[in-house]
């Protein structure tokens, strides 16, 4: 069991970083924290690879590093540059940070209960990490729901994507690398498209606040 300790600790770090993604005020900072989180994710994959001895996980880690820690932040920073100085303005979140923290904690707890209640093909020791990965899905949703800044909503999507990544790695470490590459490129395209849309929206509406987009409604 103790061999999974590092994996679980990294899982804990992962949720802490995603909490900061939700809480951070400006898109710039969010991008940096997201990049940091992706590095934690890479470390987690490496640690999992060492523990399970699965070779594929190292390739996963490498692709994840390129796509998540480098490419996605780069795309986002590029989009921010395109938008210009107004991207630095903080768009208020619709809930207070305290509520956000407690919400994430509650989601984590519920996911743990869910993971605990289900018989799983993998080792018992990774249950905490699995709960964390499942919780990422909800944290991402929380980010999308509570943040009014459309750029941060993109990061919410990225968080969900990271969560599914870890879940896959934990449940099926032996999956062929092709699957992983598919997922990664898929995510990249999604982020590219969303970033382009965000830049376009800003060009038209001159705002990144989702609440200002009411004119788009039919």
């Amino acid at each position: 069991m103790t061999s999974y300790l590092v994996v679980n600790i990294l899982g804990g770090l992962l949720i802490v970083t995603s909490l900061f993604v939700v809480l951070s005020k400006t898109p710039q900072r969010t991008t940096l924290i997201y990049s940091l989180q992706s590095i934690v994710l890479v470390l987690l994959l490496v640690a999992l690879g060492v523990t399970t001895g699965s070779r594929e996980l190292f390739t996963w880690a490498a692709t994840a590093f390129i796509t998540k820690a480098v490419l996605v932040p780069a795309i986002m920073l590029f989009a921010l540059k395109k938008i210009g100085p107004s991207a630095k303005e903080a768009v208020p979140s619709s809930i207070s940070p305290v509520v956000a923290i407690i919400l994430v904690a509650v989601e984590l707890f519920v996911c743990y209960l869910a993971v605990n209640g289900i018989e799983l093909p993998t080792a018992l020791g990774v249950k905490p990490a699995l709960a964390v990965s499942l919780a990422h899905f909800f944290v991402g949703l929380t980010c999308i729901i509570t943040q009014r800044n459309i750029l941060k909503q993109i990061f919410g999507y990225c968080l969900m994507e990271n969560g599914s990544h870890v879940t896959l790695a934990l449940l099926a470490p032996e999956a062929p690398g092709l699957v992983e590459i598919g997922i990664a490129t898929d995510a990249i395209f999604a982020v590219v498209i969303m970033a382009i849309v965000a830049v376009r929206i800003h060009r038209v509406v001159k705002s990144l606040d989702a609440d200002d987009l009411r004119e788009l409604k039919g």
Partner: peptide, 13 residues
Amino acid sequence: IVVALLVFLSMSV
């Protein structure tokens, strides 16, 4: 959606 998911999760538990 989130609420519904959480409810289903808890129900499964």
